[in-house]
């Protein structure tokens, strides 16, 4: 059952990704941008222009380009079927390799922010739900509305001004390590983990120090919707018929609380998945404030340079990760709540 469900979800996700790939492929080519002139410059001769167009392959019919991209013409260039996302038009390196270098930065940032946000927001949200209508609950509620509607890039800058410029307790927002330090060997791409693997504890501390403000920034924004969700789901669970009935049956307080917690957790999974996907894409802003060099900044460069293979790859990879996260959380949801049938 479980295996069938997972394979079905993978199949549906794969179809969705194929649809997405084709849609993105055409969409960016239908827009009036001219990547060739961006590459060769406005004043390039028609010959140079034609030469560059041929080199990028954009002189060929769209469908032929698509066929190559999808990997149906490996004799021209490897494509998706061969596990290749193409070659960057700007740097000339395979996009797969570039993504592999940039993606972990973003995953590290988003994951750490999520852990911090959950650690703070879940207890606060539950506290609000357990003391409904009180001053504290009202404060929690207003905070959650506020934090959930903030421009993270501005808060990032504000933190920089406050903690770097004014107080001097945070490093300059110029990357994952100070320019003096040499990074550890890349194993996972997560700076924190790699430094530990390399046994360089000082680098680990330094990486955390550099991650501090960006993670605070994102965790602050994230805490809003998470608190709101936990508070709402918990309040709903506490008002549910079965919690009321558990009290009627005289079950011990601890057991009733367990009932409510489990009931509140189950529906939270979906929103957490959506938030994770949203943050993966929205990390662009935080990354660019702190010059972290993650997939978001890679995306900005790709977009501003009209680097089509890179653009396609970013959209595809982020969507694929989101879909996997959704699936994982749906599985957890189903494990908590037997009503969710596979």
């Amino acid at each position: 059952m479980l295996f069938r469900y997972i394979s079905k979800r993978f199949a549906v996700g794969l179809l969705q990704l194929i649809g997405l790939t084709i849609a993105v492929f055409f969409l960016i080519r239908l827009l009036p941008a001219d990547p060739v002139s961006r590459l060769v410059g406005m004043n390039a001769s028609p010959e140079a222009y034609a030469q560059a167009a041929k080199q990028l392959g954009v002189d060929r019919p769209l469908l032929a380009q698509l066929a190559t991209y999808l990997g149906f013409q490996p004799e021209i260039a490897p494509g998706l079927l061969q596990g290749s996302l193409g070659v960057s038009w700007v740097t000339g390196t395979p996009v797969t390799a570039e993504i592999a270098a940039y993606l972990p930065v973003t995953l590290e940032l988003v994951t750490l922010s999520f852990i911090l946000a959950l650690a703070v927001a879940v207890p606060i949200g539950m506290f609000g739900a357990l003391n409904p209508g009180g001053k504290a609950d009202k404060g929690v509620f207003v905070y959650s509305l506020f934090a959930g509607s903030q421009p993270e890039f501005w808060w990032g800058l504000l933190f920089v001004y406050l903690f770097f410029f004014t107080l001097g307790i945070a490093p300059a927002p110029l990357g994952r390590l100070s320019p003096m330090s040499s990074p550890p060997d890349v194993v996972t791409g997560f700076m924190t983990i790699d430094s530990l693997i390399a046994g360089q504890f000082d680098l680990f501390v330094e990486a955390l120090h550099h991650l501090m403000l960006p993670v605070f920034t994102m965790a602050f924004i994230l805490s809003g919707p998470i608190i709101k969700m936990v508070r709402q789901n918990m309040a709903r669970a506490l008002q549910s018929d079965f919690v009321l009935y558990a009290n009627c049956a005289g079950l011990p307080k601890r057991r009733v609380a367990g009932y409510a917690l489990r009931a509140a957790m189950a529906p939270s999974m979906t929103l957490i998945g959506i938030l994770y996907g949203f943050m993966l894409s929205g990390a662009v802003l935080t990354e660019s404030v702190f010059s972290l060099g993650g997939i978001g900044q890679y995306a900005i460069n790709a977009v501003l340079n009209y680097d089509y293979p890179a653009i396609q790859a970013v959209v595809l990879v982020i969507t694929a990760i989101s879909l996997v996260v959704y699936l994982a959380l749906d599985l957890i949801h189903a494990a908590i709540d037997p009503r969710i049938a596979f």
Binding site: Y259, A263, P338
Partner: peptide, 10 residues
């Protein structure tokens, strides 16, 4: 409302 009064997860 017996069905909603039973814990749906147990």
């Amino acid at each position: 409302n017996p069905r909603s009064s039973l814990n749906p997860m147990l």
